Amino acid sequence: MQLYNTLSAKEREALIEAAGKERLTISFYKYAHIGNTSIFRNHLFIHWNALDVLGRIYVAKEGINAQLSVPAENFEALKHHLDSISFLENVRLNIAIEQHNKSFLKLKVKVRKKIVADGLNDSTFDVTDKGIHVGAEEFNELIEDPDTVLVDMRNHYESEIGHFKNAITPDVDTFRDSLDIIEKDLEAHKEDKKLVMYCTGGIRCEKASAYYKHKGFKQVYQLEGGIIDYARQVEKRGLENKFLGKNFVFDHRRGERITDVVISNCHQCGNPCDTHVNCANEACHLLFIQCETCAAKMNDCCSDHCKEIHALPYEEQKRLRKGKGASNKIFKKGRSPVLKFKK
């Protein structure tokens, strides 16, 4: 029985183009107690592979975190399958604001220790004792309240291209880095301020809200459905959109525009830009912001060195990479010293 991908990304891309069918990019998460994660993982792969679902799905004993792409014609079948799983019945599905048929090119369902790497010992607090979920209208009211502290629970490269006005945007590389920093910075306001959090789709805030309540914060709120659902709500209900810029997403799109304002700049020339790319040198693959002018000038690379490597014959590039580990720059998104105008 097939429980893994048999096609390469390029082969899948060709099939998607040949099919010419609209696909939907969707994300969802759910904290739940899963007994046998391997059996559940295999169950999902078998059913979703048959529906031509592609994406990145993490399964752990604490629940599921899924970002995926499905043919629009199979959406109802996918929804029916989710509803057949008790803890996923009527789960909120965040449908992307901007669609792209090639947002994912493989189906990867992986068993992990956590569905989001948070570095927390969940046995020390009740992860179900969450903060108050609020929709777009109440969120807009809360963040205008002088007694509110608004915190972006995402990483620096996410908030750099887009965030809510007046939000605290921790300069961190990972979610786990932000938890203790935020608690320390807001130590004096655990009782007198409303702590309002937001993230991409809500999953990081779900865990963080329970953690901060455990740490003594008395008034904890989170944006229901994250930035993705907020954008849909404000458009549907004619509310003021208080988000500035783009929402970073973890698929081949790398971002979806929420408002027209550009709040970041090209890391190479400093001109206004909010387009994330990966360095074309596969031995580097650094994530950074690059404008079209610099992309043409640098051949889609982050530095002159990478440009020289990328210009070599592919077999020579492979030879140079052989036996070498991945560059640390891959994981220091936008932090490389070769970037003159990095945040």
Score class of each variant (00 low, 15 high):
H276R: 05
K130L: 07
S264R: 01
A231L: 06
V134E: 00
N90C: 13
F75T: 06
E315A: 15
D83G: 04
V53D: 01
G55N: 02
T259E: 02
V53S: 05
N90R: 15
K332F: 06
N140D: 05
K106L: 11
D177M: 10
V59W: 00
G225D: 03
A136E: 09
L339V: 02
E17S: 14
A283I: 11
N140V: 09
M1L: 14
D129M: 08
L51M: 12
E76C: 10
S103I: 03
E292Q: 14
L24E: 09
A77I: 04
V172N: 09
R176G: 11
A188D: 14
M298P: 00
D122C: 09
Q2N: 15
E282H: 08
E224S: 14
D177R: 04
K218E: 14
F175N: 02
A280F: 08
A117C: 10
T37W: 08
L223P: 03
L3S: 15
I263P: 00
D122H: 07
E256N: 03
I181P: 03
K329Q: 12
K342S: 13
F125V: 02
Y314M: 12
K333G: 07
W48I: 00
G334F: 06
T148Q: 06
N42C: 09
K113Y: 03
S327H: 04
D122V: 10
Q2W: 09
F331Q: 10
G225N: 01
K193E: 02
N49Y: 08
A96F: 14
I143N: 02
L54S: 10
D145Q: 11
C266A: 11
V111E: 05
F40I: 08
N49M: 05
Q222S: 02
Q317F: 12
I203F: 08
F341H: 13
E22V: 08
Y4K: 14
E316A: 10
L7H: 11
N328L: 06
I228Q: 10
S264Q: 01
C199N: 12
V262S: 00
L88A: 06
I289R: 13
I289Y: 02
E235F: 07
E240W: 00
D147M: 13
T37H: 06
I258T: 04
R335I: 05
K329L: 12
P146S: 11
Y221N: 05
E292T: 12
R12W: 07
Q290R: 09
L88Y: 02
N101W: 11
H267V: 05
N299E: 06
L150Q: 07
E183N: 15
A210K: 07
C279D: 13
V261F: 03
L105H: 07
Q268F: 01
H81L: 05
D229I: 11
K215R: 15
R41K: 13
Q290H: 10
S27A: 15
Y212V: 03
E144I: 00
V53L: 11
N140W: 05
K215L: 14
Q67G: 12
